[in-house]
Design a protein around this nucleic acid. Structure first.
Lengths: 398, 398
DNA sequence: AGTAATAATTGCTAACGTCAATGAATTCGG
DNA sequence: CCGAATTCATTGACGTTAGCAATTATTACT
């Protein structure tokens, strides 16, 4: 047990104490609800009686409710009474920190975003970041009004090697941080429990509970495409967290073949042709027009401008190969590509799928590939999801 | 529950019924023993009392014994009484099937090999394989004598996509099998429960309990180098089993750079320069001497013959890169290379480490690399380890 | 010898989940 | 329209299990 400098003084919502099995039950209601007790029993292997007993205190405390919709039509027997989580019963805040801004969201129990707040920072020293996060949280809390009373905790995600248990950012190249006790710094000012997490890890948790994994998928991969390229693994029903806090360095697999040198000093990293920054660079170089930004390039590509299309195509090839590598190694059921500009572009999708199919080995080729538009808010929502999960599991939210 | 055609008629050893926590206790005794109760309590988070209660029936039944060595010297207080598993209390058989032979081992509870039996096959049809396995098992059982009465079950491992729960080989390219109900076929003739498993999966289980993972490592990677190249992942305390039964296709990552075409039809697969077959091919081609086999080449390499050294060096480079890819994606604590001819070759090891260090990203570079000689028996031992694990976990051994 | 320290055991208790019986709410057949 | 069949949900008794706290066991140190 670790002593915390600023024990929160505000009373916050608490789940009634629950056994591991009961937590499992609540998790199913949250991620697969509305769901009747029978189905929960079948899925968890518990008896119906156990489910009933687990659910009772949750309903009593107002976290779970009977869903209006009843019954399985045209089936004999007593109709089911589906259970769902009471979305309004608790509130969470998630903040994603980048080098130049802090992005905050407030969510309900179901990770639905209620409000957002972006705030730019001139610098990203720990002190400046703490001030900015504080401002973001303050704005969200103010606008939450009454609902701020249900605020359980605040999740903060950063890229790099994060020690969640101790709330320390061990090493974040993008921020230039090393061993920063971020949780301590924030809790001194926020009066709420703070949970620090790696950004990709948090996003993977969000997908696990509120995205692809919410159904019955027990292994998937997410690939995030932005200025960099990241990768989150969910295998055998667990989010993979490299033993040193680092994993998912998909962007630096040496699978590109253009001979470009990466920021990291090596050649042919996937990022050199597949990140959004790389796409912009490539199109600018090919056209000689340095004024083009991503939006303009997407427009050009949709219009069929050859340089733009070619850049997306090369990027898609690299991503397809990268996913094939991951799939060949780990055999996930689904791979989700979360990209800002690439998701609604047909040529991109086609090339990714084609490349993947050519490179995937045997049964790994059965892996489904989904493309999905990705907003910056999703990162912040991930940070919130991490807090939601710790809340449900009754871990110390930190 | 599935009905089995040949329910074994021989009574075989059974563990006293145990709760999950008690199974955890036994697992620690098996994998980390001799170990005193206090340490088990600390590691599992159970109370000492619970450990005492869990251990009692196991000692009673003769599966666990108090270790002779006592005490922690020079410490006050009552000395510890370490517990160990009674190696002789049970016996297991594991058989690895390749295209041209069946390799069997008999082991005790601690997966120590008691006896081995190899038998070659002219063909590898299911019928022929069943006959050969039967002969291998019969020979082992005969030589086991009295100890055959303690035989719990027989593990059989094959490469490819295996459905262990149903005992079916879904797809094995090397054997040319498709949906073969191997367990059923074998149980008809063996009068003992049979467990079918993927070979790499089984080997990973052996490493988890009786190899690198036996201490307190909770994520590692094994890379097997032979005629092909495989990869087993143990992450977050669980053996990764691709959702389609396939994973670990490390040999076909496109990381070689010699432009060689692989059996699989693609170019630059790691296997094209790093498998033992590839090394032999390369040296034969370079020297023009088609009479050279692996043993001869290893000798040449040790003697410093340039072509041989270069071939090993290229192979080591590819393996180093491949491990870096896996480590960057999953962040294991240890990577074990199990190779038949490469393990005791300094130049190989040096190049692997150097390449890995250059390619590993950030904290992933902390991954330890171990080289280890690998015998064919290890595959069969893996099959036995898979049965040992199912026995301890009180799963239906199939 | 007595004290401190650590390990192991014991009985008591509380928590939890299953079982089996009961109650609840519907469809369907006559 | 009523009862039989069917499925879902609840209840209370029971058994298992693990923690707690007190007790016993065995050593080192003074």
């Amino acid at each position: 047990m670790i002593r915390h400098p600023a024990e929160p003084t505000v009373t916050r919502p608490r789940l009634p104490p629950a056994s591991p099995a009961a937590i499992d039950v609540l998790t199913r209601i949250l991620t697969s609800g509305p769901i009747p007790r029978v189905d929960i029993a079948r899925q968890t292997g518990l008896s119906q009686a156990a489910v009933t007993k687990a659910v009772a205190p949750l309903v009593e405390a107002g976290f779970v409710a009977l869903d209006g919709a009843r019954g399985r039509p045209d089936a004999p027997g007593r109709p089911v009474t589906p259970l769902r989580v009471v979305a309004e019963s608790v509130t969470f805040i998630g903040v994603k920190i980048t080098a130049d801004e802090a992005i905050g969201v407030a969510t309900d129990f179901g990770a639905t975003i209620l409000d957002t707040e972006h705030r730019r920072m001139a610098r990203h020293t720990p002190a400046q970041v703490v001030r900015t996060v504080q401002a973001v949280v303050a704005a969200l809390v103010r606008r939450l009004g009454e609902r701020a009373e249900q605020l359980v905790g605040i999740g903060v995600s950063v890229s790099g090697d994060v020690d969640t248990a101790h709330g320390i950012v061990r090493d974040s190249p993008k921020l230039g941080w090393h061993d920063v006790a971020l949780r301590e710094l924030l809790e001194e000012r926020l009066d709420r429990p703070v949970r620090i997490d790696n950004d990709v890890h948090a996003l993977t948790i969000a997908e696990q509970w509120f995205g692809v994994g919410a159904g019955d998928v027990d292994s998937f991969v997410i690939v995030t495409i932005g200025s960099g390229i990241g990768c989150g693994l969910y295998l055998n029903g667990d989010v993979v967290n490299g033993s040193f806090g680092v994993s998912g360095e998909l962007g630096h697999l040496p699978l590109a073949d253009q001979g470009l040198t990466c920021e990291c000093g090596r050649v042919d990293c996937v990022e050199t042709i597949a990140s959004s920054a790389a796409i912009v660079r490539a199109v600018q170089a090919a056209t000689g027009r340095t004024d083009l930004d991503m939006d303009a390039i997407v427009e050009l590509a949709h219009a069929g401008q050859p340089d733009a299309v070619a850049a997306f195509d090369r990027a898609a090839t690299a991503i397809g190969r990268a996913i094939a590598v991951v799939a060949n190694l780990t055999g996930p059921e689904v791979a989700v590509i979360e990209g800002e500009s690439v998701a609604d572009f047909d040529v991109y999708e086609t090339t990714v799928r084609k490349t993947f199919a050519a490179q995937a080995f045997g049964a790994a080729a059965q892996c489904r590939i989904e493309l999905r538009p990705h907003t910056f808010d999703a990162w912040a929502r991930g940070a919130a999801a991490s807090v939601i999960r710790s809340f449900v599991r009754q871990e110390d939210p930190r």
